[in-house]
Amino acid sequence: MNPIKMMGDQSNQIGALLMDCATMLEKYVNRFPAEKGCASFSPEDMKRWKEEFYPKLVETGILLDGKFFNLQGGNFGIGIDGYFTGYEFFQFIYRTYKALYEHSKLKG
């Protein structure tokens, strides 16, 4: 079931949070493919990631970050530590855009 649909009255808050998360993530797109290995958020973005985006979007299941990669076990996706590789980053930003689209369809 779609977690955004289940949020009911909180749907507007979730939509705004998804938009804020996407806006933050877009600042990091140009770091790849030039960036080798892992990248991380700036200190300001790391604070928002740990206090807002990760607990409210990832831990609640609105954005299923680690579920895509966790076939073999291990630490994949953008975890609470805020470190990510290019493929982890682009998978996560894709999921964010997809959730925004699904949210807009519910509002439509």
Rank of each mutant, 00 (worst) to 15 (best):
G74H: 11
F84Y: 14
K98D: 00
D20W: 07
Y87L: 10
P33K: 08
G74T: 07
G82Q: 01
N70K: 07
K27G: 01
F41P: 00
K50W: 00
G8Q: 09
Q72W: 12
S40F: 13
E52Q: 13
I80E: 02
L71P: 04
F89Q: 07
I78W: 06
E51T: 08
G37H: 14
K27A: 03
L25R: 05
K5G: 03
Q91E: 06
Q10D: 06
P3E: 05
Y28D: 02
T23R: 08
F92T: 15
K36T: 05
S104N: 10
G108N: 13
F92I: 15
A22I: 14
Y94P: 01
F76W: 13
L17V: 04
I4L: 10
Y94H: 12
K56I: 01
R31M: 08
G74Y: 10
K47W: 01
G74N: 07
R95K: 15
R95V: 02
F92Y: 15
M24H: 01
Q91H: 13
S42K: 11
L57M: 12
E44T: 02
C21M: 13
I80D: 00
I78C: 10
F53R: 06
R31D: 03
V58W: 00
I4E: 02
I14Q: 05
L17G: 02
A16D: 04
Y87E: 04
P3C: 11
G79H: 09
M19H: 14
Q10V: 02
N2W: 08
S40N: 09
Q72G: 08
N2A: 07
F41E: 03
Y101H: 08
D20Q: 14
K67S: 04
K56Q: 00
Y28V: 11
R48K: 13
K98Y: 12
C38E: 07
L64K: 13
F84T: 04
D65P: 06
G37M: 10
D9Q: 13
V29A: 00
K27W: 10
C21W: 06
N30D: 12
V58L: 00
F90D: 01
D20H: 07
L71M: 08
Y83W: 09
M6F: 09
L63W: 00
L18S: 02
M6G: 00
G86E: 15
E59F: 08
F76E: 02
C21Y: 07
K5Y: 08
Q72C: 11
Q72E: 05
M19D: 01
Q10A: 09
P33S: 14
G66A: 11
E35F: 10
K36W: 12
L18R: 09
F92Q: 05
V58Y: 03
I14F: 09
F89L: 12
K47S: 02
F32D: 01
M24K: 07
A34Y: 09
T85F: 12
G66H: 12
K107T: 04
W49S: 00
N75M: 11
T96W: 05
I80T: 08
P55Q: 14
F69Q: 05
M46N: 03
F41H: 06
M6L: 09
Y83V: 07
Y87P: 03
V29E: 06
A34F: 08
N12I: 15
C38L: 15
G77N: 10
E88P: 07
Y83S: 06
R31V: 01
Y28E: 02
Y87S: 11
K36Y: 11
P3W: 15
Y28W: 15
F41G: 04
N70H: 11
M24R: 04
V58H: 03
R48N: 00
